[in-house]
Nucleic acid binder design. Structure first.
Length: 565
RNA sequence: CGGGGCGUAGCGCAGCUUGGUAGCGCACCUGCUUUGGGAGCAGGGUGUCGGAGGUUCAAAUCCUCUCGCCCCGACCA
C-alpha cells in the first residue's frame, strides 16, 4: 500500500477524552475515530486489524466444524417476548419502533434469532450437533461506555451457538469451542487465563471467560498459586476458613461516638477489621434484608442476588432505614428488627465480634452467633481476597485484573424451552435443543492486544494481527533512494509481503515516528547513508534490533521477512 | 441514575474573573532553504466560541434552559 494514496493519518497529541493507553494509541495511530459516546469508526488501518482478527477466528471456527451465517441487527420484539427477555433484559436493550409503531430491538446478542432459526430448520436428531456463528455488529446501551472500543455500545462480536440432542453431546460441543478459543487466543499472542464465570444475563449453568491479563481490565479475577483454579471474582469461591477456638466472652455495649465506618470503629476500639461484623442493609427486589460480613470483606452482589433468587439488589433507601429505626453506621444483628438476616459463612465462625448496637454512637463487643443474634441463612457472599485459601487445593489465591475477550456458556434448554424450539429424537418424541453460546469481542481484542504490547513510541503488533507486515520508508528525496525504494516496494508486493510504503514527501523523523506509532513488526529503511555503503536496514519493532542487508542480497531479506513471525 | 469536569479552527489549548474587532501551538495551503528521529524563514484562517432564549448600545465572556462529551460513584450505612 502506497501511503500517499492511502487513508492513514496520525495525531501528534493524545486525544483529551482518552484515558487508557490502547484508546489513546488507537486514535493517535489513526485506527479509529469517535462518532458518539461508545460508537466508533474503524478507519482503513483499523479495519485491516479487525479483518486479521476475524480471519483467525474464521479459520479456527471453520476448522472446528462451525458454520458461518449472518443474522439481522434489527430484531422484532416478538422474538424477545417469546424468550421472556423483552421484560428482563433491562435498559441495555435498545428498543426502537418502526413507522407502523411496531417494537423492535437492536440486537445485543442473538440467542433469540438463532433459536428461532434452529427451531425452523433442525427438525431431527440426525441433523445434530450443529454449531453456527456470525461475526456481526451488536448494540448494548451500556450505562457508561468507556476506554474507546474496549467498552463500546456498538461493537463487532463473533457469536456462535451450538445445538445438541443430549447433555453429553452438548458438553462435547462446548469443549470443541473451548479448544478453538485456545487456539485463537494463542495465535493472537495473548497472555490470558481461562476463568470460571457467572453467566449473568445470558443464563445457563457452566460458563468460562477468557481473560487477557491487564491492569486496565474491568474484571477482577482470582487464581491459585499452586493449582489450575481461576475464576472471575463474581464467581470465585474461597475455601473454608479455619475455626477459632476462642472462649466466648460476655457481650458488652461500648460508646463509639461518630464511628460510622468499619475503619473508624476498628481504630476506635483498637481491634482489627476482621474482628468486626459489617452490617449492610439492602433491598432484594424491594424486600429489606440485613447482610452481615466480616469487617474486612466486601459484598459480592452477584453472588448474593443469585443466592437470594433476587433480580435486583439495591442499597436500602434512607426511608427504609428510618422506618426500621436503623441508625446508619451503627446497625447490627443483635436486637435487630424482625427482618431477614443473611450472613457470609465466615460469620458463623467468628467469635467475640464487634458490631453496631442499633443505637446512635454505640457498638457491641463480644457478640457471638448463635448466642446473641439470629441469622436466617448463611451463604458464600463475599468477594474473595488476595491470600484467601483456594477452594480446590487450599493454596493461596491471587487477585488480578483482566480484559474479558471471550466468554463461553453451556446454556442447556434455557432458550429452546422458553421459545419452544426442538427436534424429534430417536423415539419420535419432541425434545428441546441443548445449547451452548460462545462470544468473542473483536474490537476489544485489538484494544487488549495494544494494552499488552506497546512502548512509549506506540503500538507493537504481533505479526498475526498487524495491519501490515512491514513499513517501508524512503528517507530523504534523493532520486537514487526513491528509485531504489520503488523497486523494493515492487519486490515486496510480488513476494506477497503486506507493505505500507511511506512514499510521502516527509522528513525522516516524521516517517520514523509514524512507523513506530503504528507498530508494524518490521520497518525497512532506505536512506542515502545506507545506500552509499551498499546496505539497507530492517528494524524489528518489538526488540529494536537492526539487521543490515547488502543491496545485492535483497532476496535474503525478503526470505527473512517472510519467515518472521 | 447521583456527583464532578469540559464544550472556542482538523487536533491540543488560552481568552471568560472585570462584556468592547476571536487568539496560541501543532496540523493544513503557497514560496524559498533544509533533509537518517516530529526543520527554518516568509505569507495564508480554514470559526454558527455546542444549541436556544434572555440582559445590554454591545455577549465566547453575565443569566436561564437545553444538548453533547469525559471522569468518579452507584458494596463497607
Amino acid at each position: 500500500m502506497r501511503q500517499s494514496k492511502y487513508f492513514f493519518y496520525t495525531l501528534r497529541e493524545d486525544p483529551k477524552d482518552a484515558e487508557v493507553i490502547s484508546h489513546k494509541l488507537m486514535i493517535r495511530a489513526g485506527l479509529i475515530s469517535k462518532v458518539s459516546s461508545g460508537i466508533y469508526n474503524y478507519l482503513p488501518v483499523g479495519t485491516r486489524i479487525i479483518q486479521k482478527i476475524e480471519n483467525i477466528i474464521r479459520e479456527e471456527l471453520n476448522a472446528a466444524g462451525a458454520v458461518e451465517i449472518v443474522m439481522p441487527i434489527v430484531q422484532p420484539a416478538q422474538l424477545w417476548k417469546r424468550s421472556g427477555r423483552w421484560e428482563h433484559y433491562g435498559k441495555e436493550l435498545l428498543r426502537i419502533k418502526d413507522r407502523k409503531d411496531n417494537d423492535y430491538v437492536l440486537g445485543p446478542t442473538h440467542e433469540e434469532v438463532i433459536t428461532d432459526i434452529a427451531g425452523k430448520f433442525l427438525k431431527s436428531y440426525k441433523q445434530l450437533p450443529q454449531t453456527l456463528y456470525q461475526i456481526h455488529t451488536k448494540f448494548r446501551d451500556e450505562i457508561r461506555p468507556r476506554f474507546g472500543v474496549m467498552r463500546a455500545r456498538e461493537f463487532v462480536m463473533k457469536d456462535a451457538y451450538s445445538f445438541d440432542a443430549d447433555l453429553q453431546s452438548m458438553e462435547k460441543s462446548y469443549e470443541k469451542m473451548r479448544d478453538a478459543y485456545i487456539r485463537i487466543f494463542d495465535r493472537i499472542g495473548f497472555d490470558y487465563k481461562i476463568v470460571k464465570a457467572d453467566s449473568g444475563a445470558i443464563g445457563g449453568s457452566v460458563s468460562e471467560e477468557f481473560m487477557v491479563l491487564s491492569e486496565v481490565g474491568e474484571d477482577k479475577l482470582a487464581y491459585c498459586d499452586s493449582c489450575s483454579y481461576a475464576a472471575n471474582i463474581e464467581a470465585a469461591v474461597a475455601g473454608q476458613i479455619r475455626q477459632t477456638d476462642q472462649q466466648e466472652k460476655p457481650i458488652e455495649t461500648v460508646e463509639t461516638p461518630g464511628c460510622k465506618t468499619i475503619e473508624k470503629v476498628a481504630r476506635f476500639l483498637n481491634a482489627p477489621e476482621d474482628r468486626l461484623i459489617k452490617t449492610i442493609m439492602i433491598e432484594a427486589d424491594k424486600e429489606p434484608v440485613m447482610v452481615l460480613l466480616a469487617g474486612d470483606d466486601t459484598l459480592n452482589e452477584i453472588k448474593l442476588a443469585r443466592k437470594l433468587g433476587a433480580k435486583e439488589i439495591t442499597p436500602a433507601s434512607e426511608e427504609t432505614l428510618s422506618r426500621l429505626l436503623l441508625p446508619a453506621g451503627f446497625m447490627g444483628p443483635v436486637g435487630a428488627p424482625d427482618i431477614k438476616i443473611v450472613a457470609d459463612i465466615k460469620i458463623k465462625e467468628m467469635k467475640n465480634a464487634g458490631c453496631g448496637a442499633n443505637i446512635q454512637d454505640k457498638h457491641f463487643i463480644n457478640a457471638n452467633y448463635p448466642r446473641d443474634f439470629k441469622v436466617d441463612q448463611f451463604f458464600d457472599i463475599r468477594n474473595v481476597k488476595s491470600g484467601d485459601p483456594c477452594p480446590k487445593c487450599g493454596g493461596s489465591l491471587n487477585i488480578t485484573s483482566g480484559i474479558e475477550v471471550g466468554h463461553i456458556f453451556q446454556l442447556g434448554d434455557k432458550y429452546s424451552k422458553s421459545m419452544d424450539a426442538g427436534f424429534l429424537y430417536t423415539d419420535g418424541k419432541k425434545r428441546h435443543f441443548l445449547m451452548g453460546c460462545y462470544g468473542i469481542g473483536i474490537g476489544r481484542i485489538a484494544a487488549a492486544a495494544i494494552e499488552q504490547s506497546h512502548d512509549k513510541y506506540g503500538i507493537i503488533w504481533q505479526s498475526s494481527i498487524a495491519p501490515f507486515k512491514i513499513s517501508l520508508l524512503s528517507l530523504g528525496n534523493d532520486k537514487e533512494v526513491i528509485d531504489f525504494t520503488e523497486e523494493l516496494y515492487k519486490k515486496f508486493e510480488q513476494a506477497d509481503i503486506e507493505t505500507l510504503y511511506d512514499d510521502r514527501d516527509e522528513r525522516a523523523g516524521i516517517k520514523l515516528a509514524d512507523s513506530d506509532l503504528l507498530g508494524c513488526p518490521i520497518t525497512v529503511i532506505v536512506g542515502k547513508r545506507g545506500m552509499k555503503s551498499g546496505f539497507i536496514e530492517a528494524k524489528i519493532r518489538k526488540t529494536g534490533e537492526k539487521k543490515q542487508y547488502k543491496i545485492d542480497d535483497i532476496d535474503d531479506m525478503i526470505e527473512w521477512i517472510r519467515d518472521y513471525r
